[in-house]
């Protein structure tokens, strides 16, 4: 019995290895094309003279990116906004999730379910009323405005995810802390949060990438170069009816790096955090 299982395990492993190669090609090929395009001169980019790999690799597109566009400013703005959004999502999410996971009050179940429904609201249309809200708050064309706008998708998600995770923290630990004279907030900070690091990692990671990647709100709510984000900067490589693919792909490639680094840092926890958080809620 055991032998057949280990035999089939070995077969499965080889099937797995084979599929892994296929999946890697499927996943990475578009990246290859992105990077290859960014390293070509125009002549190799267009038409049938387009080459499958850069015959004469050049950094001209990157030079153009850094030389003629304020790309570093875009990076700065995207970073400020992504970090600001992440910090607030964590804070709001922790507080709300604690209430939903640990406290009894009327309306609790309704709010918990409502969090999911907020996702259904299609952003493609919300930008106009949201623009009005931002105008009233005088937050058009500011970092704060975008941070706030992005809270509309990151806060429900983080609250929901943390709620699921907080529930899995043993009650006894918290009871002990409360008996020792800890306040509710104290027990949240001292007992629950230290045990929820994986979920916090997931929230950090998701809030950061989603803010970093957002496009529609950024385009509508921001005018000046001082606030412009990377995804918006990309759209400026389309002038009337001409695309500048070289620098656009260079910018694309560079802008995927930060979320990737985030994932590398948080990977260990993300998998664990998802197990207990979102996935159960």
């Amino acid at each position: 019995m055991v032998r057949t299982t280990s035999g089939s395990r070995r077969i499965l492993k080889w099937i797995g290895n084979g599929l892994l190669v296929v999946l890697l090609v499927w996943t990475l090929l578009p990246f290859y094309w992105m990077i290859a395009t960014s390293l070509k001169a125009d002549r190799e980019i267009y038409g049938f003279e387009a080459t499958l790999y850069p015959h004469r690799p050049t950094l001209a597109a990157y030079g153009r990116l850094f030389g003629t566009t304020p790309f570093m400013k875009y990076v700065r703005n995207s970073t400020i906004i992504a970090i600001g959004n992440t910090v607030l999502s964590l804070a709001f999410g922790c507080l709300g999730a604690y209430a939903l996971a640990r406290l009894r009050f009327p309306g609790r179940a309704l709010i918990a379910r409502g969090l999911v429904v907020t996702y259904l609201v299609p952003p493609a249309l919300l930008f106009i009323p949201l623009f009005a809200v931002m105008s009233v708050l005088r937050l058009i064309d500011t970092h704060q405005g975008l941070i706030l706008a992005y809270l509309s998708f990151s806060v429900p998600f983080s609250t929901w995810l943390l709620m699921g995770y907080f529930r899995s923290v043993p009650l006894e630990l918290e009871e002990a802390a409360l008996v020792d004279g800890c306040s509710r907030l104290g027990s949240l900070v001292r007992v629950i949060l230290p045990m929820s690091l994986p979920a916090l990692a997931v929230v950090t990671f998701f809030s950061f990438t989603q803010s970093w990647n957002e496009f529609l709100y950024a385009n509508v709510f921001v005018n000046s170069v001082e606030v412009r984000t990377i995804t918006m900067g990309l759209s400026l490589f389309v002038v009337e009816d001409v695309f500048f693919w070289g620098p656009m792909m260079a910018a694309s490639f560079l802008s995927t790096l930060p979320p990737l680094v985030m994932y590398l840092i948080f990977q260990r926890w993300v998998v664990k955090g998802l197990t207990l958080g979102a996935v159960k809620g």
């Binding site: 623009f131 009005a132 931002m134 105008s135 058009i140 385009n219 005018n223 759209s235 400026l236 009337e240």
Partner: peptide
């Protein structure tokens, strides 16, 4: 205020700003 607006996004931006009276 001198703002550069990408052509493809001009319609969305203009619509939102007119609706907000701005």
């Amino acid at each position: 205020e001198y703002a550069v607006v990408a052509n493809e996004q001009a319609a969305a931006k203009l619509a939102a700003s007119i609706e907000a009276g701005n």
